[in-house]
Design a binder for these strands. Structure first.
Lengths: 211, 211
DNA sequence: GTTCGCATCAATCGTTCGGTTGAGTTCCGA
DNA sequence: TCGGAACTCAACCGAACGATTGATGCGAAC
C-alpha cells in the first residue's frame, strides 16, 4: 500500500465535495485527484487521469445524471470502481445504480469510517453496501413483492396522469369494469387501498416515473 | 468585527457538516462552535452556548426534524438566526420553513461565497434567500389568489401520501368539510378536477416533492 | 373601516370509487 | 391436456369523493 488510492469526487454540491475531500485527506492512503460537478466532467477527467474509485452522487441538478455517468464509466476499458453516494435509499435508485454497474452504494449519512472502508472495499473490487441499503435489497430479493403485469403497469402509468376510471377505459379500449378489476389487483400488490397511495408507492418503487 | 460569528451546524450528514465546517473555517470572521445531527441536540447546545446563526438542514433521518427545530429555536428568548440549508426548493419546504421563523433559506448547491454572505446577512437580521427560492416566493406574492396558500400546500403534501379526506381532517385537526373546501380551491387553482391529477400537477410544478 | 384573502364549518346531492362475487377468453408451460 | 396466469366483462352496494351553496371569524391592506 505504497501508492495512495486515487479518488474522483462527482457531486454537484460544493459543500459535499469539500466535506468528502476533508474526510479522505485525513487518510494518507487516499488521494482525491479531482472533483467535478457532473457526469460529463467526470468522463473528461477519466480520459486523461488514472483513477481507482469514483465517488458518484446520483442526483445532479444539471448535466449528466449519476446513473448514466455510472453506466458510461463502467463501460470504459479497465474502468475504475464506482461507489454511489446518495441521500436516497429508495428501491428505484438502488436498483438503477446496481444495474448500471455500481460497485457499491452508500448513503450520505454514513459515518466517515464507514465511507473510507467502503472506498477500500470498492477499490478491491468488493461490493460495498450501506446497512440500510443491504437490508432493503435483501427484502426485495426475498419477497419478489408480486410483480405487476404489463397491463397493470400501463394502467398505473395512466392513473398517475390523473385519469378517472372512465377515462382510463376509453384510453385503453376496455370496459370500466375491467379497469376496476385491474385496480383491485394493483392495490393488492402494492399494499394500498386507494389510487393516490398507489401512485406514490409506485413512484417510490420506481414502477413508474413522473415527468 | 472583532469577535467571530458563532455558528451552529445542524445536519444529519457527517459529510455535509465537515464540508460546511471547512467552508466557514476559511473565514477568520466565523467560528463553528458546534455541530450536531438533529434538532434535540441543537436545542441542547443552545441551552448553554451562545450562537448567532444556526445552519439548519430540513430533512433529518431521525430525531426532531428541521422545521420543528426551527420553530422551537425561534421561540427561545433572544434567539439566534436560523438559516435553513437544504437541497429542496419546493413550495412546501420553503413555506414551512418560513412559517417556522427561518431567517433565510439557501440551497446546498450554492457556491461557498454565497453561503458565507447568507450567514452574514442572517446574523445582521436580514433575510437571506437563494436565487431560486427568492423567485419562487416572488411569484407567489405577485399573483395572490392564484398561488396556493400555505394551508393548501400543506393539504397537498399530505394528499400525496395517499390520505383520505377523513385522514386529512384528523391529521390537521380540522373538519372534513374544511378539507373539502380546501380541495375545491386547490383543484381550481391547479386546473384539475380530482386528487390524483392534483398530485401529479403539484409534483410537476415543484410545489411538493415525492418521498 | 371596509374590503379581501384566508381558514374554518355545515348540509345536500349526484358521481365516482373500491370491494365483492362470479365468469368467460386466450395463451403458455408443466 | 391440464392448470394457471393474464386480461376481459358484469352486477351490486356502501363508502368516499367532488360540486354547490352558504356562513362565520380574523387579520392585513388600502
Amino acid at each position: 500500500m505504497n501508492e495512495p488510492l486515487r479518488l474522483l469526487l462527482v457531486d454537484d454540491h460544493p459543500v459535499v465535495r469539500s466535506g468528502l475531500r476533508a474526510m479522505f485527506e485525513d487518510s494518507s492512503d487516499m488521494l482525491v485527484v479531482a472533483e467535478v460537478a457532473d457526469g460529463e466532467a467526470a468522463l473528461e477527467v477519466l480520459r486523461h487521469t488514472e483513477v481507482r474509485v469514483v465517488l458518484m452522487d446520483l442526483q445532479m441538478g444539471e448535466g449528466m445524471d449519476g446513473v448514466t455517468a455510472t453506466r458510461e464509466i463502467t463501460s470504459l476499458p479497465d474502468p475504475p470502481a464506482v461507489l454511489v453516494l446518495t441521500v436516497y435509499d429508495t428501491d428505484a435508485d438502488i436498483l438503477a445504480a446496481v444495474e448500471a454497474g455500481a460497485t457499491g452504494y452508500m448513503l450520505k449519512d454514513a459515518p466517515p469510517e464507514q465511507l473510507r472502508a467502503a472506498v477500500k472495499s470498492a477499490a478491491a473490487g468488493e461490493t460495498a453496501l450501506g446497512p440500510d441499503v443491504a437490508s432493503r435489497l435483501f427484502d426485495r430479493l426475498r419477497s419478489p413483492g408480486e410483480a405487476l403485469s404489463p397491463r397493470e403497469v400501463e394502467i398505473l402509468r395512466l392513473l398517475a396522469q390523473g385519469l378517472s376510471n372512465r377515462a382510463l377505459s376509453r384510453e385503453l379500449f376496455i370496459s370500466e369494469a375491467t379497469v376496476k378489476t385491474h385496480l383491485v389487483h394493483i392495490f393488492d400488490k402494492l399494499g394500498v387501498d386507494n389510487r393516490t397511495a398507489a401512485i406514490t408507492t409506485a413512484l417510490r418503487r420506481g414502477i413508474i416515473r413522473s415527468g
